[in-house]
Amino acid sequence: MIGRTSANQSFVRRLRSDRQGTTLTEFAFVGPVLILMIMGLFDMAHTQYSSSVLHGAVQKAGRDLTLENANSNQASIDEGVRKQIATVMPSGAEIDFERLSHFDFADVDEPEEFTDLNSDGICNNNEPFIDSNGSGRWENKRGKVGIGGARDVVLYTAIVTYPRMFPMFTMAGMPRNVRLEASTVLRNQPFDEQSDRNTTPGNC
C-alpha cells in the first residue's frame, strides 16, 4: 500500500514538471483571439480602401453631372462609378444613387421650413410648411429628385452595401453588411439662366 502511494506521488511530481504540449495549450487560448484581430485589421483596411475608391469615383461623377449634356449621360456616369467600385468590392455588392437638386448651397441637407405651432420639433397637426421640392408633403430634405437645371446645386450620393469578406464578424459584434456612403455637392454650369425659386405653401 505504501509502495503504491509512493508511486502515485512520484507520477504526480513527474506530471507537474512535464512541460510537453504547453505551447499547444497556450495557443488554444491565444489563437482564436489573434486570428480574430488579424481578420478585423484586414476588414478595416479593406473598408477604408473601398471608401477611398468610392469617394474618388463620386467626385468625378459629380463633376461630370454638372456639364451641359449631363441629363443624357446619367446612366453612363452611374455605370462608371459602378465599374470603378466593383474592382474592390466582393460579389453581391449593391450600389444605389441619389441625386437631389437645390436652388442654392444653403438648401443642401436642410429640411423644409415649417411653423412649429406646438413647439414639438415635428411638422404635424396641420402646421403650415413651405413645399420647396414640390412633393406635396413635408420632407427633411429640400432637394428635388434629379440634377435640376442651370446653376442649380446638385447633391450626388452613392451608397454601397456589401457582405463582409471575413466570416468572424459576429464574434466581434459587427453587422453582417458594410455600408459605405459618399457625396459631393457641385453647381451646374451656367449654360442658361437659372429658373426662379418656386415654392408652394402646404400643411403637414
Rank of each mutant, 00 (worst) to 15 (best):
residue 100 L to A: 10
residue 44 M to Y: 12
residue 69 N to M: 00
residue 107 D to P: 05
residue 149 G to W: 05
residue 22 T to V: 05
residue 29 F to R: 04
residue 147 I to W: 01
residue 76 S to E: 14
residue 24 L to D: 00
residue 22 T to I: 02
residue 144 K to S: 15
residue 77 I to P: 05
residue 20 Q to H: 11
residue 62 G to P: 04
residue 19 R to N: 14
residue 21 G to R: 00
residue 91 S to G: 08
residue 141 K to A: 13
residue 38 I to E: 06
residue 87 T to R: 14
residue 106 A to I: 15
residue 144 K to A: 14
residue 6 S to E: 07
residue 90 P to M: 11
residue 79 E to W: 08
residue 71 N to R: 10
residue 22 T to Y: 00
residue 128 P to Y: 04
residue 89 M to R: 09
residue 46 H to V: 02
residue 57 A to C: 02
residue 141 K to T: 12
residue 60 K to R: 09
residue 102 H to L: 02
residue 67 L to Q: 05
residue 11 F to V: 12
residue 35 I to T: 09
residue 100 L to V: 11
residue 53 V to S: 01
residue 129 F to Q: 00
residue 132 S to M: 14
residue 143 G to P: 11
residue 28 A to L: 02
residue 32 P to S: 07
residue 83 K to F: 07
residue 138 W to A: 04
residue 95 I to M: 06
residue 152 D to P: 07
residue 116 D to V: 13
residue 20 Q to F: 03
residue 30 V to A: 12
residue 50 S to T: 15
residue 56 G to A: 07
residue 20 Q to M: 03
residue 75 A to L: 06
residue 43 D to T: 02
residue 128 P to M: 08
residue 26 E to G: 01
residue 53 V to C: 02
residue 107 D to V: 07
residue 30 V to H: 05
residue 87 T to V: 11
residue 99 R to H: 09
residue 27 F to A: 10
residue 51 S to F: 04
residue 63 R to D: 04
residue 15 L to Q: 03
residue 123 C to D: 07
residue 27 F to V: 05
residue 102 H to S: 03
residue 57 A to H: 09
residue 75 A to W: 02
residue 98 E to G: 13
residue 44 M to I: 13
residue 142 R to A: 00
residue 48 Q to A: 14
residue 117 L to V: 06
residue 32 P to M: 12
residue 53 V to D: 06
residue 113 E to L: 08
residue 30 V to M: 09
residue 79 E to P: 03
residue 144 K to Y: 02
residue 110 E to L: 13
residue 147 I to F: 01
residue 134 G to V: 10
residue 66 T to N: 00
residue 50 S to I: 04
residue 78 D to W: 08
residue 8 N to I: 15
residue 10 S to K: 11
residue 152 D to F: 12
residue 146 G to D: 02
residue 111 P to C: 06
residue 70 A to M: 00
residue 96 D to N: 15
residue 32 P to Q: 11
residue 62 G to S: 05
residue 99 R to W: 08
